[in-house]
């Protein structure tokens, strides 16, 4: 059994000072409620009362910086594009100034819009089904 008087054992004062330092660090980080208030995370995503981890707060900080670069800011937990208009095109043009992945997404959507038009040619809505009466009849007499 190791001796309680080991010279390698940290002194009480050292332990306490470290403890208080880490406490201050933790306090300096945003807690969940503050994070929601600041609009970094959406309210409904925080269901626990735990303090945000250092890693998560760093991520949030970084994301906020990126959003700001793209001209998007966070108001009340919602992403809002700066200079937004009612016109949908305006929004799109703002986004096109964003990251490469965003650009790719928009390109893909434009491509789909064209293909979608082609599909619509082949789509018809029909609910036709022969209902029952006295017995069941399917199809019908051939057209002359």
């Amino acid at each position: 059994m190791p001796s309680k008087n080991s010279i390698n054992k940290p002194k009480l004062a050292v332990k306490q000072s470290r403890k208080s330092a880490s406490g201050q660090k933790r306090a300096s980080r945003l807690n969940a409620a503050q994070a929601v208030k600041a609009g970094i995370v959406k309210g409904d995503t925080v269901v626990h009362g735990r303090v945000l981890s250092k890693k998560q707060s760093k991520k949030d900080e970084r994301n906020r910086r990126y959003l700001a670069q793209r001209g998007v800011c966070v108001i009340d937990g919602e992403l809002v594009i700066k200079g937004e208009d009612d016109d949908g095109d305006e929004k799109m043009s703002d986004i096109t100034q964003g990251s490469r992945t965003q650009l790719k997404k928009i390109e893909r959507q434009q491509l789909f819009a064209v293909e979608r038009q082609q599909i619509d040619k082949y789509l018809t809505e029909s609910m036709e089904i022969t209902s029952t009466g006295k017995g069941t009849t399917l199809g019908g007499p051939p057209e002359k």
Binding site: T124, G133, K134, G135, T136, T137, L138, G139, G140, P141
Partner: peptide, 15 residues
């Protein structure tokens, strides 16, 4: 499997 007219048949049974 839609849009093709079934053959013209009449059954005495029904659902």
């Amino acid at each position: 499997g839609s849009g093709i007219k079934p053959s013209w048949v009449h059954s005495e049974f029904e659902v």
